[in-house]
């Protein structure tokens, strides 16, 4: 008995895929605008990437190669389950190699390796509305987007500077898309914001619980909001990756023992692994045996 016989290709029925594709097309036509869509029941609960999964399911074809990452890693729970899900319902090729993927579904990070034309990056989004925490009324936020009334967004940044001396938002940092809509880039670190600007790849955003899809077409202007005298800055790290010595990448902190021992390593596991294969070594590399090096090879 084959599992495929019980599901339509990629789980969703064709009418649903059509509905989602229409929403995606509308999102591409209006960069940064949140398109409502009829989010379906998925075999994982809300909060586990149902929006991203529905977008991927609507665009994936038998010849696609899928990569799934969660906080930059291919081997965490979320990434592993979603990859297994698509293997089961679509039987597509999967990979951990960023350059070799045609579709990359991600939770909260953009890969370090630059994306190319023809690739699609699908983001999982919890709260699509950047103004939600300042203005709880949906009726008001819709008007604000429609009338381009974004003063409130800068109020939030003003408050940060007044309280902390600088803009304290470090993830889900709001951006202005193609000079018109203000968008929440999903809870990616602000470090990743510059990667969204004029990317050759298509960027799609899916929020399953909130039932919104939005998009940034290739080569679109994506500018982080700031003040003239407090310009947008990315985070910097004062040491390179402990495993592969990479610099200018986003690092995760890993606790090593109960005595406060820790190390900073690449959040993007594929990137780190490739660099180590090329021979780069960080100052902790020989001592640590990583679980990811034992991962099943891509099929």
């Amino acid at each position: 008995m084959t599992d495929i016989a019980t599901y339509n290709f990629a789980y969703l029925d064709e009418q649903t895929k059509r509905m989602i594709r229409r929403a995606i097309l509308k999102g591409i036509a209006i960069p940064g605008y949140q398109v409502p869509f009829a989010s379906r029941e998925m075999p994982m609960p809300y909060g586990w990437g149902t929006g991203g999964v529905q977008v991927t399911a609507s665009i994936i074809g038998p010849d696609d190669v899928l990569k799934v990452i969660d906080q930059g890693a291919d081997d965490t729970t979320n990434a592993v389950s979603i990859r297994a899900f698509f293997k089961k319902v679509a039987n597509v090729a999967v990979t951990t190699d960023t350059a070799g993927a045609t579709i990359i579904q991600t939770r909260h990070r953009i890969p370090e390796h630059p994306l190319t034309a023809g690739q699609v990056l699908v983001y999982q989004v919890p709260i699509p509305e950047p103004l939600r925490f300042l203005e709880p009324r949906e009726t008001e936020t819709r008007k604000m987007h429609a009338l381009e009334e974004y003063g409130l967004m800068h109020v939030k940044l003003y408050e940060d500077i007044a309280k902390h001396g600088r803009i304290a938002t470090t993830y889900a940092y709001p951006v202005k898309v193609e000079g018109r809509y203000v968008m929440d880039p999903s809870p990616t670190p602000k470090f990743d914001n510059p990667k969204m600007h004029r990317s050759p790849a298509l960027q799609l955003f899916g929020a399953g619980r909130e039932k919104r899809i939005y998009a940034v077409p290739p080569f679109t202007d994506v500018v982080s909001l700031d003040f003239e005298d407090h310009p947008f800055e990315v985070q910097t790290f004062d040491q390179p990756c402990a495993l592969c010595a990479a610099e200018n990448v986003y690092l995760d902190e890993v606790i090593l023992d109960d005595h406060g021992g820790h190390m900073f390593v690449c959040s993007d596991t594929d990137h780190c692994e490739k660099r180590r294969q090329e021979g780069h070594r960080g100052h902790l590399a020989p001592e640590i045996h990583l679980a990811s090096e034992k991962m099943e090879p891509a099929q």
């Binding site: 300042l134 800068h154 109020v155 408050e159 007044a162």
Partner: peptide
Amino acid sequence: VSAGANVGERLMAVGDRHYGKI
């Protein structure tokens, strides 16, 4: 929202982008 932000909101709404001046 703070008193300063309350006063500054309209300025930001019409495009003022200099924190110090606001």
